[in-house]
């Protein structure tokens, strides 16, 4: 029996997997672009059919490309690794604006000074190890914990080398903070002077418009003058889910407790325990019969002595 006719009949039921159009295919992104000109006749005759056949051709081409990739087997079945994408997707967000230069950066760029990154670690000859340049166990604190320090000849009587080193280090930190703040302030000021000036003028205009006896109500309106709008307050919707609300209010409560934790700790040291578990002062007062913790401790130690004495007597 000749099965070839049967096979032929079976194959004829499905469309050919061959696609006779050129497509741009990027298997990495599973992307097909059909750059062929639209067949006007087919498009006019039946739009749906035309679109469907175009889409089918594209998908067929993509699948053919996928099946031509090298395939290896895995526990989940045969797997093909997609190549790296070649199509360049456009950027979703605009490019970040360049940061305003600091004073030093401006100077360095004018003088052509290259920036070199310092390592965070430096080699310590004594320890024979890499140590932090600053921070925890930093090299910059080295002078502060020496057991012996050379005192300069003209030093004061109460010269403390460790303290001196520490104040010097703190001064450097303070100077850096000051310079950083100045840089931030400068950057703030330099942020588009034109725009800030415009805002300033607008706010001045707004305040003058309502600076009349009727607060601007009966003033002559100019053409195209806009209504003054205040700040619009925005609140949570009233029908927010109660579970969410409870969570947020518990978070606020935790924040409040955090801020008052210091106060509570002090109160606890006084014995007025905010911790609700044991009021230490009250407990001590009760146990000692109002005589205080010292007498309690003393009586406890004498009690011990007494018991041992009794034992000896027996």
């Amino acid at each position: 029996m000749d099965v070839s006719t049967l096979l032929q009949a079976q194959n004829d039921k499905f469309k050919s997997i061959e696609v006779d159009k050129e497509h741009e295919i990027d298997p990495g992104l599973l992307l097909v672009s059909d750059l062929n000109p639209i067949d006007a006749e087919a498009h006019e005759a039946n739009l749906e059919d035309h679109l469907q056949s175009t889409a089918r051709d594209g998908v067929q081409a993509l699948l053919a490309a996928l099946f031509s990739l090298p395939i290896h087997s895995s526990p989940d079945g045969p797997v093909a690794k997609l190549p790296a994408p070649t199509y360049e997707l456009p950027r979703a967000k605009p490019l970040p604006k360049p940061k305003p230069q600091t004073k030093w950066e401006r100077f360095a760029s004018a003088k052509g000074i290259q920036h070199s990154v310092k390592d965070k670690k430096v080699w310590d000859e004594e320890k024979q190890d890499w140590v932090n340049r600053w921070g925890r166990y930093g090299k910059n604190k080295e002078l502060e914990d020496q057991w012996l320090t050379e005192v300069p000849a003209n030093a004061d009587v109460d010269f403390d080398p460790a303290k001196d080193a520490k104040t010097k280090r703190k001064e450097v930190i303070a100077k850096n903070t000051k310079q950083r703040d100045a840089n931030l302030a400068r950057a703030q000021k330099a942020a588009d002077p034109k725009e800030s000036r415009k805002k300033e003028i607008e706010s001045t205009l707004q305040s003058t418009r309502k600076s009349t006896a009727s607060m601007g109500k009966f003033d002559k309106k100019l053409d195209g003058e806009k209504k003054i709008r205040g700040i619009k307050r925005k609140f949570e919707p009233a029908e927010v889910s109660a579970a969410n609300e409870r969570k947020s209010s518990l978070a606020i409560l935790a924040g409040l407790e955090g801020s008052s934790a210091k106060k509570a700790r002090r109160a606890e040291q006084d014995g007025q325990g905010a911790s609700d578990v044991v009021n230490v002062r009250k407990a001590v007062k009760f146990a000692s019969g109002g005589k205080g913790s010292h007498s309690l401790a003393r009586s406890a130690s004498t009690q011990k002595g007494k018991t041992s004495f009794k034992k000896g007597k027996r």
Binding site: F235, E236, P237, A238, V240, E245, S249, I252, L253, G255, L256
Partner: peptide, 18 residues
């Protein structure tokens, strides 16, 4: 009728916590 803002909640809670 509306839920309290965060600031209002804080004011209320500090008062009640007293």
């Amino acid at each position: 009728m509306r839920p309290l803002t965060e600031e209002e909640t804080k004011t209320l809670f500090t008062k009640l916590a007293n």
